[in-house]
Design a protein around this nucleic acid. Sequence first.
DNA 1: ATTCTGATAATCT
DNA 2: GATTATCAGAATC
Length: 201
Amino acid sequence: MARKSDQTTHKLGKALNRKFFDRSVHEVAPELIGATLLVDGVGGMIVEVEAYHHTDPAAHSFNGETPRTRIMFGPAGFAYVYRIHQVYCVNAVCEAEGSASAVLIRALQPTFGLDEMRARRGVDDKRLLCSGPGRLCQALGIGLAHNGLALDRAPIEMFARTGVPDVLRGIRIGISKAVEYPWRYGVRGSKYLSKPFAKVA
DNA sequence: ATTCTGATAATCT
DNA sequence: GATTATCAGAATC
């Protein structure tokens, strides 16, 4: 059921390499807004992310390395995938090896492979394809098999944004610790956010 | 538009 | 046995 508007693409910047991620999460997270994430050619523009720092009680890495969080303690530029309830979430590991910081990818604006995403998700509404960390993993076919994969090698591709979008900042969602840290970023007015941002003056 | 509840499984204590 | 960086559907404002 792809309509013409579904096939609209956006301009892709240069491919992101590991160097891009080897900086503070607080620099990388806002710059990922407007970038593009594809897995096997399916994906879209990132419209919402959250930063998790190793000094942050809400981060999985806060209490030290465990088998699950091993990837977060490795070098930057790799995918950390974990399961929560019945879905998966993807993160981009940032900063130097051992810093255990990552950016959670929370929502995409679907642009490539709409039909495949609809088939995997079992819904038709474009707004429900990738508007949430679990939804976008299902739409792109991401699972535990992707844990530890490099973000700059097949099947994963990431591209820089070509312009600077209007980026909003706010408090993170769905966590119970360090609730007040304003480390969520998103595109102002996007229809594809997992939740609207609270109004800010 | 906001709030709630149950599903369901790996991980850690 | 407790916890969880979620989702969908239902109920209520």
